[in-house]
């Protein structure tokens, strides 16, 4: 498969007030691949992920420097609305809107002036998120009535409906039971045909199951980056090895 870089972080530094949370990180994200960011909690992996679609803007004390290049533009200097439209995000806890399943999918496209066939969009998106069969008969029910796993897939579906280039996933399975986790993991593997996915997880098995590339973060620095099987079988750094063999974390 030929490899094309779609997103490229260059010397990114992020501070929370005085705390230097991300230290000079450079990282390339490859198109139609799954990149996992792993590391112990507090290593900054979620912070970096959130800067990819400017969700860090909501943290008042936060300061960020460097460049995250997406199609040649530094998205840290772009219009955040534009960035978030093209780079979607799935959160740690399922957060469906308190609306019907149908409206959960259509809300995003609608506010961006989508004029196509909404029913078709809903069907496509739900199929894309492997949720269609379960909910096709109750599209007008409240999304809050779905199970946790279904809610998370609905959140993925509503992200797909925006037709983003990249989907960010911030520990998408941490609030789910094992069965739902497997379904979401399978879904991630399916999705990379059409999307580029960056997933943050502290679950190493999950990273090894779903990702093609893995970046290991420790205390705000990127210790190692490479193909997932290499990282997990033959890490170059001692720190990485210690982490994946469970000596700390």
């Amino acid at each position: 498969m030929n490899i094309e870089t779609v997103l490229s972080a260059k010397n990114v530094n992020i501070w929370y007030g005085e705390k230097h949370a991300i230290r000079n990180i450079s990282l390339d994200i490859y198109k139609n691949h799954v990149t996992a960011i792993i590391g112990p909690s507090g290593c900054g992996k979620s912070t970096l992920l959130r800067s990819f679609n400017r969700m860090n803007d909501f943290v008042e004390t936060l300061k960020q420097k460097g460049g995250i290049f997406f199609e040649g533009n530094n998205l840290l200097e772009a219009d955040p609305i534009e960035v978030r439209t093209r780079i979607g995000m799935v959160f740690q806890r399922p957060n469906p809107f308190p609306k019907s399943i149908f409206n959960n999918i259509t809300w995003g496209p609608k506010i961006h002036g989508y004029t196509g066939d909404l029913e078709q969009l809903v069907e496509e998106s739900l199929k894309g998120a492997a949720l269609w069969d379960e909910v096709k008969d109750r599209l007008n029910d409240s999304a809050l009535e779905l199970s946790g796993g279904q809610q998370q897939r609905l959140c993925i579906a509503r992200t797909i409906a925006m037709k983003p280039e990249i989907i960010l996933m911030d520990e998408p399975c941490s609030a789910l039971d094992p069965k739902s986790t497997i379904r979401v993991e399978d879904l991630i593997t399916d999705l990379k045909k059409d999307y580029t996915i960056i997933i943050v997880t502290h679950n190493m098995q999950q990273a090894s199951r779903v990702s093609d590339y893995t970046a290991f973060f420790y205390e705000g620095k990127m210790v190692e980056f490479g193909q997932t099987d290499k990282i997990f079988t033959a890490p170059k750094e001692k720190k990485t090895e210690d982490y994946i063999t469970g000596r700390f974390g």
């Binding site: 978030r84 979607g88 959160f91 469906p96 509503r158």
Partner: peptide, 24 residues
């Protein structure tokens, strides 16, 4: 979480306010 979910889809503040916050 609802607000962030909406912002993450590229919603503007007034979309979030009228489309998500106010109805709830």
């Amino acid at each position: 979480s609802i607000r962030f979910g909406a912002y993450a889809m590229g919603a503007r503040k007034h979309h979030v306010v009228f489309g998500q916050v106010l109805p709830v």
